[in-house]
Design a protein around this nucleic acid. Sequence first.
DNA 1: ACCAAGTGTGTACGGTCGTACGCACTTGAG
DNA 2: CTCAAGTGCGTACGACCGTACACACTTGGT
Lengths: 185, 185
Amino acid sequence: MGGTRRVANDPLRRQRILDAALAVIAERGVHGTSHRGIAAEAGVPLGSLTYYFDSLDAIFEQAFQQLADSMSEHYRTALTQAGDVAEACLAVTDLICGDQYASARELTLLHEMYAYANHSKAVAETCAQWLGRSRASLSQHFPDRAARAIDALIEGWPMHQAWEHEPLDRELVRATITAIAQRFA
Amino acid sequence: MGGTRRVANDPLRRQRILDAALAVIAERGVHGTSHRGIAAEAGVPLGSLTYYFDSLDAIFEQAFQQLADSMSEHYRTALTQAGDVAEACLAVTDLICGDQYASARELTLLHEMYAYANHSKAVAETCAQWLGRSRASLSQHFPDRAARAIDALIEGWPMHQAWEHEPLDRELVRATITAIAQRFA
DNA sequence: ACCAAGTGTGTACGGTCGTACGCACTTGAG
DNA sequence: CTCAAGTGCGTACGACCGTACACACTTGGT
């Protein structure tokens, strides 16, 4: 029953468009991102974008959703690998200081996502989910109150660092995390 | 010597344009802000914008500079009024939880500024200055290491809160600040 | 009074944007 | 093979954008 089934010729194209969108946003910001820029970056014709996505806003929404998903996942694995609280503190320190979470590209994209979320209901929801998942990862090792405080720190420290000229003091970060963990143990 | 001196008819106009720019950015984001939108908000003709400012980027740069200045000032007075470390901890708690620094409007504008700074040398410099001044205010009461950690928290916590549904736990914030202050006393 | 020069604005132009849409191509059912 | 239906794309259109600029207005010096 139900009509004939057709198969997409290029099922990866949709994904490549989303990747290209994030690349353009990282380089030029949401304010400098257009259908044509994304199409050029992805190497697909302009018509493809309107075929796969309803609007430019829809592209942003789904691209940011993908960003949040991949960051949540990275976040989760980093904390799941930790065996005890001490290791968890170290994992968090790496998250803050390392080039993994805090790479310039991811930080830039995060800023763009937060800015965009203030004007998009859908992306605001994405942010809320990403927040919830990051706290859930933290809760594997820390009590709720500590998780909240540490989460705020993970957010704020790399953001501050983005405008700083000197590198982040790794030992200072570790000591701060440990102090919070002990305070709310 | 030097030609004749002329006087501006409306010396406040420049300032009103900058205020209008921030209003439009807060409401529609940088990506939705145009010369015409700002002109309508300020109640001035379109030509005024190109007369007072070289380009739209220049307007953004100066509007964000003004934002950073006013926030730095608010920040500084809040901390200067504190008499000792305990009062400073309370002042910081207010900064994080209160509606003053953390009002939805200021938070939105901050997100927009950070996002824009990744693509503008001038605004990046504005961010760096604003960061330096906030840490200087903190240094009135806290040693350098504590100031850095607390500063990160002030940045991250309200940002996190923006996507949270329940209100911030004021007592948790105070306890965290105090713990950091004691750890690096 | 007259003029040079600074102040302010309405309009228009070239360009880019988001999106719609007609058309070619592909494919599986009959 | 035939064809209906889904897939994919080139092009075009109306809207809006940033900016330039010609032109009026105001004012201080002479």
